[in-house]
Amino acid sequence: MTSALRRAAVFFALPITLLAIWWFASAGSTDFLMPPLAKILEVFPETWSRHRLTHDVAPSLIRLAVGFAGALLIGIGAGVVIGSSRVVRLFAEPVLEFLRAIPPPALVPIFILVAGIDNVMKVLVIISGCVWPIVLNTVEGVRGADPVLAETCRSYRIGEMLRLRMFVLRSASPQIVTGARQALSIGIILMVISEMKAASEGLGFTIREFQTGYQFPQMWSGVLLLGLIGVVLSLLFRVAENRVLVWYHGQRAAARVSR
């Protein structure tokens, strides 16, 4: 067996097993709320028709992308500023702890007041949740920069912008990636939640519509779809991570070998 095949086999082994258990355990279920998996899969293609994908799923994913990108921008920017200065850090810390402790869903009513019920509100909800792990990890990453490299930059008088791009951000990138990974899973949750109140389209809205309309197989198929989206996004994330952190993984592997 080639290694690609083996990896695929390992990747799918547990999901297939779980689906099989679900399939047989739910077969012949007469519980209205828990339809058989066979029934859920049967309604899946018709439920997630091309129309629904473009009118509900795509807008959700676009809002997630915009919110996630916004959180990256704000989070990394704030993290660099806070992480670079001890004074700023001392002032910012209590505020950060306070803001971070507020569950973003609790902000939905406030965002509705200030931003209405359309895309802006939903993107704001996503940003308000995603930004924290990115800020906090960026701060740690910036603080953890190697002092010898910092002196190297100083002694070669590397300019501010070049220093930011080639030293500060790159040396914090492993932590930034960790924060971004946490933010992505929070973002998916908030994408759904932001659509459950005051929405007229979107994946979360649609799932809720099925629930209130007693279309439980369709509702379950929406949950399955959400899971699949999560898997695809995490695979995409890993591809991006491997590109950004080639050096980091390589360096760690080299250190392991030499030890």
Partner: peptide, 17 residues
């Protein structure tokens, strides 16, 4: 016009470059 070579070579080169 002054350059320094540090003792800790492993930490004075940028590992991502």
């Amino acid at each position: 016009g002054l350059a320094i070579v540090f003792q800790e070579y492993g930490r004075s080169l940028f590992p991502w470059l």
